[in-house]
Design a protein around this nucleic acid. Structure first.
Lengths: 199, 199
DNA sequence: GCCATCCTGAAATAAGGATTCCAAGATACT
DNA sequence: AGTATCTTGGAATCCTTATTTCAGGATGGC
């Protein structure tokens, strides 16, 4: 009966993610998407709908494919503070060097743009924040069980703090902040939480 | 000889600041500026140049009129930790309620957009960060002199941390984060620095 | 091999973007 | 008052935008 798709929607969406991630939604035209994906306008609209829906699909994909795996790894790491330390080390590495250097975080970027006026987008932002905070909280509770936290340190409040700190890292790295100084800042934050600074 | 301007460039620029602050540069058209300021395209271009120059002038004005006064007040406050605490209280208040609620910080927003690809813009972002950090540092050194800091707390590293935390507050508040939870997070951060949580 | 069904390509549409131009009006010095 | 100089309003320019349309090509069950 019908013809089948002549392209891979998933690979296409991944290309679109990178476009919106780097340039934001307002500065990315459909023409950019057409050029980057190599497929046709008609196929784009037929598969994903308009620009707004395309952006939303890309944002969701970023959350699921990029953010959540990191959150899961953090939450399930049983080492406590070293897990948190490693999370930030990986974050800073990814933000400051390699293919995605100075791209920031697509979700963090979405906070600052007009994207966030769409309620569905805002839901994704809130979900991202909630999941980041809870992963951090899980790691800190694990740390507390292993007596890695300074007396009086509250895992809940500390999770909030470290989550916000991650947004700061994402933002500043997009403007070219130095990886070394970001690492030092994170180390200081973790040092103030733990009985001893975590490697 | 010449005619004089029939409008106040300074008041106009303030209007433009609010446009770019709220919507970003990519989503704000010259038509929006014309409508909001009430003046004519010709006058706009003759006075400020094109859109990019207009945005840059607005960004500088934001830094000078909005950010730097806050930084100065923080740096010159002799109370130590209560000065830092009050800085964040005012920040959260301004970001979450009143005229500019959910607008975020124009400089923080610029980090996430394509604005930051302009080297001149990036210089402003760096200057903003440097001045924020140094104001924070000055307040923390004052706090240290008054024995308000926990033993082993480093004012330099803590200044870095609190500066990044401010970006996190700016970002999350733009997406509608709750003022109360932001306050709690900041309180926890300051509590981990001081011998006792500052009011 | 047929045909309904979908995909594809490229052009067409309609709206909006930034920027420029020019004639008309206002100014302040001589 | 005259005039050179600037400002102003509004139209005009040219480019880019998102979205739609449609004719033709490919597909797979019958």
């Amino acid at each position: 009966m019908p013809d089948i798709k002549h392209f891979d929607p998933d690979a296409t969406l991944e290309t679109v993610v990178r476009l919106f991630w780097r340039q934001g939604v307002a500065s990315t035209g459909i023409q950019d998407v057409v050029t980057a994906t190599g497929l046709n306008r008609s196929s784009l609209y037929a598969t994903f709908g308009g620009k707004q829906e395309l952006y939303f699909a890309a944002l969701r994909r970023y959350l699921e494919q990029r953010s959540q795996p990191m959150f899961r790894r953090l939450a399930e790491d049983e080492r406590g503070l070293p897990a948190v330390s490693e999370f930030f080390a990986g974050l800073i590495e990814a933000r400051c060097s390699g293919e995605y250097a100075q791209w920031g975080c697509m979700v963090s970027n979405a906070h600052a743009g007009v994207e966030n006026s769409d309620p569905k987008v805002r839901d994704v932002l809130d979900q991202h924040h909630r999941e980041l905070r809870e992963a951090m909280y899980a790691a800190l509770v694990t740390a507390e069980r292993q007596d890695q936290l300074a007396p009086g340190a509250d895992p809940g409040a500390s999770a909030d703090l470290l989550a916000l700190l991650a947004y700061g890292v994402n933002l500043r790295s997009r403007a070219g902040a130095d990886a070394a100084s970001l690492r030092k800042t994170v180390a200081a934050a973790l040092g103030s939480l733990g009985v001893r600074a975590a490697a």
